[in-house]
Structure formats: C-alpha cells, structure tokens
Design a protein around this nucleic acid. Structure first.
Lengths: 235, 235
DNA sequence: TAAGTTAGTTGGACTGTACAACTAAGTATG
DNA sequence: CATACTTAGTTGTACAGTCCAACTAACTTA
C-alpha cells in the first residue's frame, strides 16, 4: 500500500466503538457509558458509545477487540456482532487525527440486564437518536447504526437475535415492530417466517391471560435469513 | 473512548484501500496496482488494491483520502464511492499491527480507460476473485467488495453508475447481468426501471445493425434507488 | 354464560415477477 | 424487392406473496 516505506509516517489514534442494542421495556435501547470527569479527558462526563483504543499487544484483530469491549461492559458474549463502518478525520477527536472502527451488536433482553459495568446505562432510541448529547461523533455513528439495523430488519431475520431462546410468533412480530417503529401485517408476517425454515415449534405453549401461543426456537446453527422482499415498500 | 488518557498507546499502521470496479470488454473488472519490487517492501512485485497510508497532514477524513487515491490512479473523480468496511489485525501486514479502511468505487467504462497510473492495470473478476495472487489480505477485501456489489445490485440502481451519460435499457440490463453473472428477464427489468422515476428518455436513438433502441439518461441529482424486491429469489 | 382479548386462519384484491409468445424496426442477402 | 435474421419492445397468462379484512379458536374474568 505505501508509496514510501516510511514506517514513521505519523499514525492516527485508533479506537473501536460498539453500538449495543437490546429491546427493553418494549423499546429499542442502546448501551452508553459515561466518560470520566477528569479535565484531562476529552468530553469529560459526557455519554459515549462503549469503546476504546485498540490494544495491539492483546487484540488479535478488530472484531476480537470489539467483542472484548462488549464483554467488558455487559458481561456477555453477543450472539450477533457486525461491523458498521469506520469514521476517521482530523476533527472528530480533540487529541488529533483519529479513526474509529464501529461495530453493532444485538443482545436478547434476558442478557441485557445482567452484569453491567458501573459506568454503563441503557437509553431508549428516539427516532434515530438518544436524549443525551454524545461525545465525539458518536451521535452520527449511532444514527448510522439505527439506519443500518432498520434497513436490514426490513428483509432479514436479524430480530431473532434480540429474542430469548424460546419465543412466540406474536412476540417476534412485536420485536420487528419496535425496531421498525411501524406496525406489520399479521398473516403476511407469519407466512414469511414460517416459510423461511428458520424456526421450529417446541412442544410448549406461552400461557397468558388469553389464548396460549405456540412457542418456537431458532433452528440450530441457523445464520440470518435474507428475504426476497421488504415488508412494505418503505419508500 | 479510552479508559486511560495515554496518547502514547502504540498505534496501528493505518491505510486506506479502494476497490475500483468498471465494466470493460463485457466483463466486470477491478483496478490493481503492482507493488514496488524493492526487497524492503512487503509483497514486492505483487498486485494489490490501490491504497496507502492516511496522510494526517493532508487528508481531511477517510473518504477524502480514498477519493485522493482513486484520483491518483485513474485521473477521474468517481461518481460513486462507498465505504466497504475495515480490516485490522496483528498479522495482515508483516510490518506490524495494521488496519485498513476499504472503500469501493464504480466507474463508467468511458472514464476507466483514461489517465491510468503507470503501475495500474485492469483485471477481470472471475467468480469472486482475480487471477493473480494479491498482497496482504486484499483477496479477502476484494471478495467482500464483489459480494457487497452483487448483493446491492439485486435491489438497487447502482449499475447506473457504471453507465455512460446516455444508454439504452438493453445496455443497462446487460450491465446488471454482467455484475450478477446471471441473465435477467426482459419485461420485468423494463417495468421495474421505468417505474422507478430514475431515468428519462432523450430525443435520440441508439442505432445499430438492428432495430434502434431508445436512449435514456439519469434524472439529474438522482440518488440510487432501492427496490422493494430482489430480481429473483436468489436463494 | 357472556364479554373481552389475543392467537391463528381464511379469502379476495392487488402488485410485480416469470415465462412465453408476439409485434416492430432495422440490416443483410438472394 | 422479398425474405431471413437480429435485436427492441409489448402483451397476456400464471404465479408468488403482501395487503386488508373478516373470520374462528382458546383462554380469563365477571
């Protein structure tokens, strides 16, 4: 890649940030961490995406680095971790030219409540944003993550990664609806999911105050499914 | 992002690479550059994606850096430049922990023949690869680019960026078919394209040895269109 | 037993692709 | 000048899957 073999070429600061989503309280939420209040830090006390410098001694690669940061803040290993993109410029960090490699992760609700780091907290997504003002360009990264998630949910089975091991079809549909912020049509939703060879019924029912619902689980080792259509022409 | 404010944290080598596609000779091709033969260089003499170190003095941000490298090798400004992802690990570059930010670009054929750099050359895509063995992990990056391109071509109007300013519908369909490596159905293709409010006829015909075909151009300032379906259930 | 709620099914309208046959407009050939 | 050939473009039927709405099913509560 280099025209010149100069390894002393000045290098940008390099970080990894992770946008961690979960459904909590019937809403799409994202995990943020509060930055230290020390005045020597950029954006002291602000909320930010979990992340930090790449450890070139300890991290084998970028994804391992992202998985490590996710584990640090949540105590769990995410069932879904996808690269979102990278942001790099002279101006995004007051300490100098910096580049961050952003990932996004999906956690099931039952895993999202556990061993949270002390400086971490869940925030509801409102539109494509979150209420507090975020450090660095993290608002832009979060917005890109929400857009990517919504876009992929239109034509993939990604929301299954937000579900517990066993779930009903109405529960899965509700998860789709929360992420998309739009109601879906029941019979088309069921037809699509059941035709996808993605889930299988278990010999149990979800009992509630009304008619019980069939419980399903993901077929084992099933990669996300891509559907040939979106749910509704979103344009 | 940092738990510690240590700016002396060792930083990875940081580069940007660009996968530049064009249709040439009725085939999908990619632009590669040959690495210098000096033995002090990694992969001397190998073919590689165009790219190089980020210039933290001259590059405002990553995309500007990618656009600069594209201009350097082709002499033109690409009508389409999209971030593909980033690859970073301890092992991808023998000089040490490195991360590259990869972009992909689409060039129309008439722009792809011009002011090529001396060390640059076009290679046909065969499957998801190219015949020569590539430096670094560039074969993997190229494969990801081909997959991303094919995936998006299923449901977007991206191939319009591979066309000259005026083109016929059969020519556009042929471009889709070359990228997808699959024949498409004529009437469905025309219905979709004409319904998309994407192109408009010009008062000219393409004359050839057979029936002349209507010429079209892109409607001005038209962003890529996303269709609600893929062409063919690709599963 | 009736009302209320949610689970799940059914059927008809509609949209857009698949497939195939057709018409249209030019060139080349005898 | 008629015919064959080629590619451009249209038409019509079948089919898949969503949209919409009405329906049945199963449970709780009053």
């Amino acid at each position: 890649m280099p025209e010149k073999p100069e390894l002393d070429f000045p290098r940008p600061l390099t970080t990894v940030d992770v946008v961690i989503f979960a459904i909590r309280s019937d809403a799409l939420q994202v995990l943020l961490v509060q930055r230290p209040r020390a005045e020597t830090e950029p954006f002291p006390g602000s909320w930010a995406l979990p992340g930090g410098f790449v450890d070139i001694a300890g991290d084998r690669d970028l994804e391992a680095c992202a998985a490590r940061k996710l584990k640090d803040k949540t105590g769990v290993v995410s069932p879904y971790l996808e690269q979102l993109g990278s942001w790099g410029s002279a101006s995004r960090d007051p300490r100098g030219w910096s580049a961050t490699h952003a990932y996004f992760a999906l956690l099931p609700e039952h895993a999202a409540g556990g061993a949270l780091a002390a400086d971490a907290q869940w925030f509801a997504i409102e539109g494509e944003r979150v209420r507090p003002k975020l450090a660095f360009d993290h608002a832009e990264i979060l917005q890109a993550a929400v857009q990517r998630l919504r876009s992929k949910v239109e034509y993939t089975s990604l929301p299954t990664y937000l579900m517990p091991p066993e779930f009903t079809l109405p529960e899965l549909q509700r998860t789709y609806e929360i992420v998309l912020d739009r109601l879906l049509e029941k019979s088309a939703f069921r037809t699509r999911m059941l035709a996808a060879d993605l889930i299988e019924p278990v010999a149990k029912m979800r009992k509630g105050p009304n008619r019980p619902a069939q419980l399903y689980r993901l077929k084992k080792a099933r990669a996300p499914v891509f559907f040939a259509r979106t749910f509704n022409p979103p344009g």
